[in-house]
């Protein structure tokens, strides 16, 4: 790489040289990543607590999620992570057009991810598989008839019991509304990150197209890249924790 050491345009006055400027930007980005890990961390703690308290709740409500959609989204997101990394690789070699193409593919993958998420959410909204008090779905996946007379007391203790007049039988369900509270807040916050990432990638495309970014100066792309890989990294945990249980 050929940094002009004298004083390139992109060197801000409060930095000693471009190297220090680059390292400082990355350090700042990693400090932000730390706050992101802890933000999602709080939600992972909520997940862990409820999973430990009510494993059955997760196993039952999990049946309402579509593994295939989750798997497709995982593949889409890993592919987008690869193209993001390749966009940085291309700009490092001063291949601006290739970099632009890679950013565009990344953008499309992000769009595809949100599209699939929209289909998933829309379906759940339609069926009433919603968080907390808005939950209304009473399908066979979550509602089980109680056959074991001895278990009735324990279901009564947890208050998850109701009586169907038509069949004249007792039924129970394992708090799927709580599962969906956790599901929607975690995937929703992650989806918000994907949307923000799309905006940032669009910004990178503009900067690259205008020639602002090149082999000597691509800090923006490196920083957004770190953010985008974090989005991928979080989904890597969300996918098995929500879609692959039970």
């Amino acid at each position: 790489m050929s940094h002009d050491k004298s004083s390139p345009d992109h060197l801000y006055h409060h930095f000693y040289d471009v190297d220090q400027q680059y390292e400082t930007s990355k350090l700042g980005m990693w400090a932000f990543i730390l706050t992101e890990v802890l933000t999602f961390g709080g939600l992972f703690v909520a997940y862990t607590i409820y999973r430990a308290w009510h494993p059955d709740m997760f196993f039952n409500a999990n049946l309402l999620l579509d593994v295939n959609k989750g798997l497709i989204n995982t593949i889409v997101l890993i592919a987008s992570s690869l193209t993001m990394a390749l966009a940085i690789w291309a700009i490092q070699l001063n291949k601006r057009k290739l970099s632009l193409l890679m950013l565009f593919i990344t953008f499309l993958c992000a769009l595809g991810f949100l599209g699939i998420k929209y289909v998933e959410y829309e379906h759940k909204f339609h069926l009433g598989q919603l968080p907390g008090e808005y939950y209304s779905y009473m399908g066979p996946e979550v509602v089980q008839q109680i056959h074991d007379q001895e278990k009735i007391d324990s279901y009564i203790a947890s208050n998850n019991i109701f009586f169907d007049k038509e069949t004249n039988r007792l039924y129970t369900m394992n708090n799927p509304h709580i599962f969906f509270s956790i599901y929607f807040i975690m995937t929703g916050l992650h989806g918000l990150h994907v949307a923000i990432g799309m905006g940032l990638i669009a910004w990178l495309m503009v900067l690259t197209a205008r020639g602002r970014l090149h082999a000597g100066y691509y800090t923006h792309m490196e920083a957004v890249g770190i953010f985008w890989h974090l989005v991928d990294l979080i989904w890597i945990f969300l996918f098995p924790l929500f879609y692959l249980i039970g």
């Binding site: 308290w53 009510h54 907390g132 008090e133 939950y135 209304s136 203790a157 947890s158 208050n159 998850n160 109701f162 009586f163 169907d164 007049k165 708090n175 509304h177 709580i178």
Partner: peptide, 13 residues
């Protein structure tokens, strides 16, 4: 979780 969730109230059975 021992309070009845709201949606159970739609089943006053």
């Amino acid at each position: 979780i021992n309070k009845r969730a709201a949606f159970y109230n739609s089943l006053p059975l």
